[in-house]
């Protein structure tokens, strides 16, 4: 894994492997702490990035563990801004999934969901999500607020 220091942000270059993801997340969270980002905010960023990076590993790179992922992080206006790029498959319909959670009360025991939580969590926590396909690259732009309105809405009930 490489870390490149830019003028206003840091860029982590990692591969589409769970251990590379874990290592990058630890370093990004440590970096945010040094920038004075509050702990709950750091955890929100770490969780959102974990979901995004896991999805890139599983879906964009279809489980191949040598895909390249760049994760750029900057802080400003109380927000943490993330820009994630990969060269894997485009998102279906060229749109990031809306993400929703099934109400477990309406599920049979055997049908309780064992996955599909990722985009619901990203949408619930991130204040803004933008996606672009540029030639062979996916570009995802996220803004994560200390305590986003989306999060407050989501904790008050199932979306």
């Amino acid at each position: 894994m490489q870390v490149i220091r830019g003028q206003s942000d840091m860029i982590w270059s990692l591969t589409s492997h769970p251990h590379s993801v874990r290592q990058a997340l630890a370093q990004i969270t440590a970096y945010l702490r040094t920038r004075g980002v509050q702990e709950a905010h750091c955890l929100n960023v770490e969780l959102v990035l974990a979901e995004v990076l896991n999805n890139i590993c599983e879906h964009a790179y279809c489980g191949a563990d040598d895909g390249r992922i760049l994760t750029s992080i900057s802080c400003g206006n109380d927000m943490v801004h993330c820009h994630i790029t990969d060269k894997g498959s485009a998102m279906p319909g060229l749109m990031p999934p809306m993400g929703y959670f099934r109400d477990p009360d309406t599920c049979d025991f055997d049908d309780l969901p064992e996955g599909g939580f990722g985009w619901g969590l990203i949408r619930a926590i991130a204040a803004d999500v933008q996606y672009e396909r540029r030639n062979v690259e996916n570009h995802l732009f996220l803004q994560i607020a200390p305590e986003s309105e989306a999060y407050s809405r989501a904790v008050s009930g199932i979306v």
Partner: peptide, 20 residues
Amino acid sequence: TFLDSSGLGTLVAMRKSLGQ
């Protein structure tokens, strides 16, 4: 201190493996 959706899915799978 950290649980992501993969970890959560695993918890649900473990719950189901025990039976009702």
